[in-house]
Write a protein that binds this DNA or RNA. Structure first.
Lengths: 174, 174
DNA sequence: TATTGTTATACTCTATAACTATA
DNA sequence: TATAGTTATAGAGTATAACAATA
């Protein structure tokens, strides 16, 4: 019912204020993930690699099954990712002390070093992403998001992108 | 099949406070998108459908090329989506007034009605998603996100998930 | 018989490039 | 010759189910 809309102003192509905080959250969140993946590509890593390294740093000797359960991912999906990390010397599969079927995953020194580099990249990424906000506002934003994340039952440090079931359309988000 | 995983203290599995606001943004944003897609599935729609309907409501008579340009998507990707929406009677391809190669896309009455339903679902979704925050805090969050979105050059109402190049790994986010 | 890590297969989604009909 | 819409093909990524070794 709005036939009047001059096309001269592209910024007004779509009603601006609408959409609500939920859409903004999805939009800015996808942008953040995309930009971080871009930066991570400098190290020839994908976000899932970084996630595995981070989890392993906090919980050494994890088996692949336990790692899959933590991430909510399928064990078969992790095989290739772990293969790649191991072939680059960032982690190693050590024999499990009591169960010869499974491995104990451990970061190597190179893996720990790589994780620090990732941390530096993540901080740079965040600084660029949130450049519009003051330090105080950034903390304010993080606090609000943290409360939402807690109330929604999100696992700290685990990105929903691993979820097996209840998949959301890969790239058809809007 | 979630046999729990040995650890009695899952919440402390990974250092909590860390990760920063950028990770929280990606995490909560992906969760928001996933939950919204879940709700939208009730209408047998994917988020991309809703995005097309929304753009078309604001800019009627758009050609498929112009729509693709607006969304940053490939024209070939839109064909199937538009087909589906047209076969459900939510929009129609009308002949372009001056160029017989292209179509003018218009929402039908059913399409406008469907868009209103989508709006209702979106509001319910947001209410559930941000239940941890007061009304004032929700506005505070939206204001902060809007400033980030503006500074980052994000197009209002357009989800980055359409982008053709600079793709981020579909589901290997973390 | 159940479970760990792995592999094989089928399926989905996407990009690329052809194709047609107009311009 | 160039462009709008469409279709065809190939590639990437995933889930599912099978598999061998061990419990």
């Amino acid at each position: 019912m709005k036939p009047s809309q001059g096309d001269k102003d592209c910024d007004r192509a779509v009603p601006k204020g609408r959409g609500g905080g939920a859409f903004l959250l999805a939009q800015v969140g996808a942008h953040a993930a995309s930009k971080f993946a871009e930066r991570l590509a400098e190290l020839d890593l994908v976000p899932a690699h970084a996630g595995i390294l981070r989890i392993l740093a906090a919980r050494p000797a994890l088996t692949q099954q336990a790692l899959a359960a933590t991430l909510g991912a399928l064990p078969s999906r992790l095989v290739a990712l772990i293969d790649e990390l191991e072939s680059r010397g960032l982690l190693e599969r050590r024999p499990h002390e009591s169960d010869r079927r499974s491995y104990a995953l451990h970061l190597t020194e190179a893996g720990k070093s790589s994780l620090q580099t990732i941390g530096r990249i993540a901080r740079e990424h965040q600084q660029i992403l949130l450049a519009a906000l003051s330090q105080e506002e950034q903390q304010q934003l993080a606090a609000l998001l943290q409360r939402v994340a807690d109330q929604q039952g999100l696992t700290p440090q685990v990105h929903p992108g691993y979820a097996s079931a209840e998949r959301a359309a890969p790239s058809s988000k809007l």
